[in-house]
Write a protein that binds this DNA or RNA. Structure first.
Lengths: 194, 194
DNA sequence: CCCCTTTGCTTGACAGTGTCAAGCTACGTA
DNA sequence: TACGTAGCTTGACACTGTCAAGCAAAGGGG
């Protein structure tokens, strides 16, 4: 993508790549437009042609991240057989695995700053991602008092809370993170069927 | 605290107040050292005497926030009677209430950037806060297969995930947030008792 | 072929930021 | 009273985002 010493063929793509690389290697406040421009081999003001603000650039990177997360969740769901809760649990585990593999990206996926970008691909990608989870919850039998909203809340807060606390080193697990997540999600089987 | 036109009597305190006010009113990236210094009525380089970096200043603010959260959790626990799960649930509800009342502060409480400040009061305050939750989990009977770590994970991820998603406007609830949280935490009663 | 317009940047300026270092003032102690 | 120290202030500098003028290349029309 990046051509040395010459303008990249696809400047927008080079900027997205650069931003992604910086997000995954530097503290967030070091991911500046100028740093991305330098890494992409363009002038410091070039990003302004494609992204009105720094937040818009990062938001576009996060849209791609959401799409990857969505695809991982769909693959896991589709590989999980016919049992609705198994499919829901597989989605949850894929979600946790993605978050654990990309902690810096994950932390930014839910920030209003980035979600609220006008005409945001990210908000749309986030909606599609949430929809995979929502559909799986809708397809899973719930006890009489649990609304769909409550079911989605239960499922999503479990995985979101887990990834957030584990990635930030706040809880100590006494087994591998994925095993702990599987155990926690399995505990929800009775909540959904009972 | 702030004396108009004159240096504040307690510069460090004025800076903490200013930072807290800015955190709760401005986007995070607008909470700069210079903005805090201006609001506190001191020169732009004065904060450096008390706080080596911007992150250190914010970390100190967050230590206070953690202490407030801890106190709220303890009060709620102590008002909840003798049932161990009721006490644990009350702690969880206090946690959720705090997060909902202070979304900007809450979002920063779990950021490695701020937790990892050298000699951080914040990390210590955070540890004390987590300890209140941990003790309540330890005091709550768990089914045979659930370790203490797994119990803490379960309890904490539920509230942490809930606050994070609700404060960022990511899930739609069909009842008041506190009612939804109470319902979700009540669902955990069976998980703890088996 | 020539000229004009548009696109996609580059360059340079400027205001805001964090950081550093010299300097100033006030207070405390000998 | 004099000296030293603490707690700032001031000014400079490099980095940031943003703006605007300018340049080069490409495309289209006469």
């Amino acid at each position: 993508m990046v051509k040395q010493g010459e303008r990249p063929a696809d400047v927008r793509g080079a900027l997205l790549d650069a931003a992604l690389r910086l997000i995954e290697t530097l503290p967030e406040d070091k991911v500046s437009l100028r740093a991305c421009a330098r890494l992409a081999g363009v002038s410091h003001a070039a990003p302004a042609h494609y992204f009105p603000t720094r937040v818009a650039l990062i938001s576009a990177v996060l849209a791609h991240a959401y799409n990857q997360l969505t695809e991982a969740m769909i693959r896991a769901r589709d590989a999980a057989g016919d049992d609705p809760f198994d499919r829901l649990k597989a989605i949850g585990l894929a979600y946790v695995a993605f978050g654990l593999a990309h902690p810096a990206l994950y932390a930014m996926l839910f920030r209003p700053t980035y979600l609220q970008v006008p005409d945001s691909e990210m908000a749309e990608a986030g909606y599609r991602c949430a929809n995979v989870l929502g559909e799986a919850v809708a397809a899973t039998p719930r006890p009489g008092g649990m609304t769909l909203a409550a079911g989605i809340t239960l499922a999503w807060t479990a995985v979101h809370g887990f990834v957030g606390l584990v990635c930030n080193g706040l809880i100590l697990l006494d087994e591998a993170p994925i095993a702990a997540a599987e155990r926690a999600l399995e505990q929800q089987r009775s909540a959904f069927s009972g």
